[in-house]
């Protein structure tokens, strides 16, 4: 006959075995990691995604790796910050597991978000960092980018040149920050600069034509503070190749394929860019991390690079500027 103690021990042994069996051979205790597909909405700051080809390639790579179903949402109206915020709310209500936002207007978004705690993780991509309302910031120091850009231009051209600074609208995007950086360098160097803001009624073509006609000995250089302005300027010079001869240098921000072609052809002398592929990849990576750990707060700063015709084909930059599918 077994004593009570022995019965208890045998019973315990059987219980341990049953537990081990359930833990090792069933999903009752240790659940096998099921591949979960996450829904992530990406809200861009433009009416189309033409400037986001490289960004999208990074998003696609991350989406494959992290099993994410992405959807891109563009604005119905250009530069409409409140519309963008409405889109954020709509996506959250639509059960998106995370939202990636490229803010139209940083101040407006910051004001709207405040310190609000969203039920859905939000990843911000762009310039600067937001507060606690955002889980992650994938950001660029646009001020430093501006400084780098102006610094390179200054180094190449010196201070005798008058720098024309072109921007669409300082009230949205990162133009203001870039401008602050550029201005800082130019002022330090004692260089003259003239600001041309399209939203203030400035027509870029007219401005450029004014450098050509009437002929002048004044040396000028152009610095575009945003990609739209740089694209516009580049297009003007493509159509009117002769105008380019009257400009000492063209510099700007942005690296679309078209801009890179312009850089290679000599229309643009140098541009500042970031790794858009990496930006897209990280936005999804951080979104998935935030879905798993809602309290996770993490910021990633992307470096800025100065690209010229000479270095654009280098091993270091070619794949960054022209990401593979």
């Amino acid at each position: 006959m077994m004593s009570g103690k022995e019965k208890i021990l045998w019973g315990l042994a059987v219980c341990v075995l049953v537990f081990l069996y359930l833990a090792s051979s069933t999903n009752l205790i240790i659940k096998e990691k099921k591949v979960q597909i996450h829904r992530v909405s990406i809200i861009l700051d433009d009416v189309n995604d033409s400037y986001y080809q490289n960004f999208k390639k990074g998003v696609e790579q991350a989406a494959r790796e992290y099993h994410v179903d992405t959807s891109y949402i563009t604005l119905y109206e250009e530069d409409n910050s409140s519309q963008q915020i409405e889109l954020v709310k709509r996506e959250i209500n639509d059960q998106a597991e995370a939202v990636v936002i490229v803010p139209v207007n940083r101040e407006a978004v910051e004001k709207e978000f405040g310190e609000k705690k969203w039920s859905t993780p939000i990843i911000a991509v762009g310039s600067g960092t937001f507060g606690d309302s955002v889980n992650s910031n994938i950001y660029t120091d646009c001020y430093e980018a501006g400084r780098m850009l102006a610094g390179e231009a200054q180094q190449e051209l010196g201070s005798e040149v008058v720098y024309y600074l072109f921007a669409q609208d300082f009230s949205w995007g990162n133009s203001q920050l870039v401008f602050d950086g550029v201005k800082n360098v130019l002022e330090e160097a004692g260089a003259e600069y003239i600001v041309k803001e399209k939203s203030e009624g400035q027509d870029f073509r007219s401005v450029i034509e004014s450098m050509v006609y009437p002929a002048t000995t004044q040396k000028v250089a152009l610095i575009a503070l945003d990609r739209e302005s740089l694209t516009e300027i580049s297009d003007i010079f493509k159509v009117n190749e002769g105008y380019r001869l009257h400009v000492e240098g063209v510099y700007g921000v942005g690296s679309t394929t078209s801009l890179l072609n312009s850089l290679e052809s000599g229309i643009i002398d140098g541009l500042i860019t970031q790794n858009q592929y990496l930006s897209g990849y990280l936005s999804i990576q951080k979104a998935v991390e935030a879905i798993g750990i809602p309290n996770l707060k993490e910021n990633v700063k992307l470096d800025s690079y100065y690209i010229t015709r000479e270095n654009m084909r280098s091993r270091e930059y070619e794949r960054m500027l022209y990401p593979m599918e």
Binding site: A13, V14, V16, L17, L20, Y21, A23, S24, S25, I30, E32
Partner: peptide, 20 residues
């Protein structure tokens, strides 16, 4: 993997229990 290890422990303990 954790489950494989647990399974190995389970087999050893089962064997041990039967022997015991």
């Amino acid at each position: 993997t954790l489950k494989t290890r647990l399974f190995a422990v389970f087999i050893v303990l089962l064997f041990l229990l039967v022997l015991a």
